[in-house]
Write a protein that binds this DNA or RNA. Structure first.
Length: 696
RNA sequence: AGCGGGAUGGGAUAGCCAGGAGAUUCCGGCGGGCUCAUAACCCGCAGAUCGGUAGUUCAAAUCUACCUCCCGCUACCA
């Protein structure tokens, strides 16, 4: 692992997380692709030999299942998305040097080759595991396509995790009473031999690898604990038709797990690039086999794959380890994550349909917050960025400078740049170089904004519009400097805003592509003549933003309405006693009315607390036995701190009896005691209602 | 529950890894200037005990410990 600064003598590659061929792209996805694109452009500007590659992730169960729902072939299904992605990326100026997909020949071959190597090197073994099998549909059910009962806590659980109960990770075969989540059929377990990769053997290697890994801190820190807890070997095969067949012996009907072939696409896509441009121009083996600089930009949800499985695979197969993993934070709306399935998102398509230039979003996404920070998207913040920084600072400076220059000198005044301005531009170049080495996209963008800011200040301070009359020489000098600043802005802004940078470049009378120039071009003489400029950016009007905000809010409301299935508030786990005191502000009344039928769904009963005891380890939870006439229920309630538990037995209470069971601190809760407010004022009856009486 | 990230003037953010005069930038507020420019731009002012507590240190937003609250991840959501 080399830590010398970019640009290095080596060949580099920048990748971004593979889009999964199963749905539309939204601005959350775009953040990563745009970020990696900007980073790769910046590296190229620095003079680093580099390529930006990616590809669609075609395999995996969701694609297979969704294709089947539509009654099409998985390949056809995935290719459709693949093509849509290929068309969408350029619209955001995300320009890959190569964009392949995991089902293409290059990746298929390379994946087999690598897995074969792993096998030959003794890193793969076979183990019999129990796999759920749907006899009616005649298919095996991998991972979360099984539902059943958690063997530890009795909650409803998915095949791979007790997601609603004790949160435990479940090994295949552990879930009891398995059913297919696709068909609902009862499933059975069958013994099946699967292939495992000995990740556990790489514990020491990975620890050292992480110590030297560059990128964002979360990518280094998050896996550490996981490694300390002990790595489990990794099941790398699945019982499916869709995927890359396992290359070795004795694996009939098994394909490779999607996370095996997906990252290999990084290599395959690089290889395809070399095949297209020739190894003299760019040699993929220099990168992947000979210690190149590999930079992965990913979403922070897939850190584990890129900092544990992937480097272990690379090491085992004799490939180069990544130099950096930069894990982006998420885009949120109203502080909550985007959700594809609930349409809680701003889609790439929607943004384009609004007619906004891609560079606006590129600038917003790269300069708002640090890379690893979550960013809460609002149209107001977007507007603020656009109007304040792009229109007011960058656009305005360039426009006023070039307009002045064109009107008075028909282009660049014939004199040399002043030392002050030259030094300032060199400073900005330094900022960009530093930002790249810090993996700070915001730093790259801000170098430009700050330079434009300096320009505005410089032109204001020197007032060339006054000088033209009594000191024309000095006026020419000032404008000459401003034109140079504009040229530097075009060069430095290209990674973040390639379209606008090119437009500015052309306004300066340049006829090349600004993306092909290096940073040194920022200090080179601009063309003597150029035409009248036009405004680079347009203001976003308030009413437009209001409209967009309203649309977004409506969408978010709709998204949370059909979110009834969330099991989040199944028990009053929170019993925080507001020490702030004072007026507890009441929650607003819900606008939405429910039907009488909805009410009837609640089975609310009169009960009597038989016993109450605190739950060890929990601050707020108490275990109660409640007699509701027909039976006695065990209930967990968040009232430990708020009530004297000894006085509770004998108290009447009101119990929601058909609450779905939940397990808290290992204790099953079979109902919910009703209580009012933060202080958990218990509801009760005041007459002589019998136990078990229904509340209606 | 474990883990990761966050908490900084009215709002949004930087700085923290490599501790050093009470702290960045943007928006907003107040006052002024300019008129080349997209009612843009420039200057100045007001405003923060840097989530809490304790500790290390001559010195802490920055390091350590504990705590509170928010967001997320936990092996197929960027």
């Amino acid at each position: 692992m080399s830590s010398d600064e970019f640009p290095t003598e080596r060949t580099a590659v920048v990748t971004c997380g593979l889009p999964y061929a199963n749905g539309d792209l939204h601005i959350g996805h775009l953040r990563g692709y745009i970020g990696a694109d900007a980073f790769s452009r910046a590296l190229k500007t620095l003079g680093q030999r580099t390529a930006y590659v990616c590809g669609s992730d075609m395999h995996g169960t969701p694609v297979a299942v969704n294709a089947e729902k539509e009654g099409v072939d998985p390949e056809e299904f995935a290719l459709r998305w693949h093509e849509q992605y290929s068309e969408t990326f350029p619209k955001f100026s995300v320009e890959f040097d190569n964009y392949g997909h995991t089902h293409d020949e290059t990746n298929t071959e390379l994946t087999r080759e690598i897995v074969t190597t792993l096998d030959e090197e003794g890193y793969v073994y076979e183990k019999e595991i129990k796999v759920a099998y749907d006899p009616d549909a005649d298919q095996y059910l991998p991972d979360r396509y099984v539902e059943g009962t958690c063997p530890y806590c009795g909650s409803k659980a998915r095949g791979d995790e007790c997601d609603e109960g004790c949160q435990r990770h479940l090994e295949p075969g552990e879930v009891e009473n398995p059913t297919s989540s696709i068909t609902g059929n009862t499933a059975e377990y069958r013994e099946r031999a699967h292939k495992f990769f000995r990740v556990s053997e790489f514990t020491d290697y990975l620890t050292e690898f992480l110590d030297g890994l560059e990128g964002t801190p979360n990518a280094r820190n998050q896996p550490r604990q996981w490694i300390e807890d002990g790595l489990q070997d990794w099941c790398i095969t699945r019982d499916m038709d869709w995927g890359i067949d396992y290359p070795g012996e004795g694996a009939d009907g098994l394909v490779l797990y999607v996370w095996v072939d997906a990252p290999i696409e990084y290599i395959a896509s690089t290889k395809q690039y070399t095949e297209r441009v020739g190894s003299d121009a760019y040699d993929w083996e220099d990168v992947w086999k000979d210690g190149g600089d590999i930079v992965h930009v990913i979403g922070r949800d897939i850190i584990q794959h890129h900092t544990v499985f992937w480097p272990a695979m690379l090491e085992a197969a004799g490939y180069t380890a990544p130099r950096a993993v930069a894990a982006t934070g998420f885009i949120t709306i109203d502080g909550k994550g985007l959700s594809t399935s609930r349409n809680r998102a701003i889609w790439a398509r929607e943004y384009l349909e609004e007619g906004f230039h891609p560079d606006l979003l590129r600038y917003y996404l790269t300069t708002t917050g640090g890379l690893q920070q979550d960013v809460d998207f609002t149209w107001e913040a977007f507007q603020e960025k656009v109007n304040g920084e792009l229109v007011g600072t960058v656009g305005n400076f360039c426009y006023r400078s070039l307009l002045f220059a064109q009107r008075n000198y028909e282009g660049t005044p014939e004199t040399d740049v002043s030392d002050e301005v030259e030094a300032r531009i060199e400073g900005a170049i330094g900022e960009v170089r530093e930002a790249v080495n810090d993996y700070s996209l915001r730093g790259i963008g801000q170098a430009t904004t700050r330079l434009a800011q300096f320009g505005n200040e410089y032109i204001q301070r020197n007032e060339p519009w006054k000088l033209t009359d009594y000191d024309p020489e000095q006026a020419a000098q000032v404008i000459r400097d401003c034109v140079q600043l504009a040229k530097a802005i075009a060069v430095l802004f290209e990674p973040i805003a390639p379209g606008k940078a090119q437009a500015l470049w052309e306004q300066l009378g340049e006829d090349s592509a600004v993306g092909d120039t290096g940073l040194e071009a920022a200090l080179e003489q601009p063309p003597r003549h150029f035409d009248a400029p036009s405004e680079l950016f347009e203001k976003l009007e308030d009413d437009r933003v209001e409209e967009l905000t309203e649309q977004l809010e409506a969408k978010i409301d709709a998204a949370s309405d059909d979110g009834d299935d969330d099991a989040a508030d199944d028990a009053p786990t929170d019993a925080d006693d507001e020490e702030a005191g004072g007026d507890a502000d009441l929650e607003p009344l819900l606008e939405e009315r429910i039907s009488f039928d909805d009410f009837q769904d609640l089975d609310i009963r009169v009960g009597r607390i038989e016993s109450a005891e605190g739950i060890e380890g929990a601050d707020a939870l108490a275990r109660l036995e409640v007699d509701i006439g027909l039976e006695t229920r065990q209930v967990v309630a968040g009232i430990k701190q708020l009530h004297d538990l000894e006085n509770l037995p004998g108290e009447k209470c009101i119990l929601l009896a058909n609450m779905e069971p939940a397990t808290l601190f290992g204790v099953e809760s079979n109902g919910m005691i009703l209580a009012a407010g933060e202080e958990a004022d218990l509801l009760t009856t005041h007459g002589d209602a019998d136990l078990g009486e229904k509340v209606r």
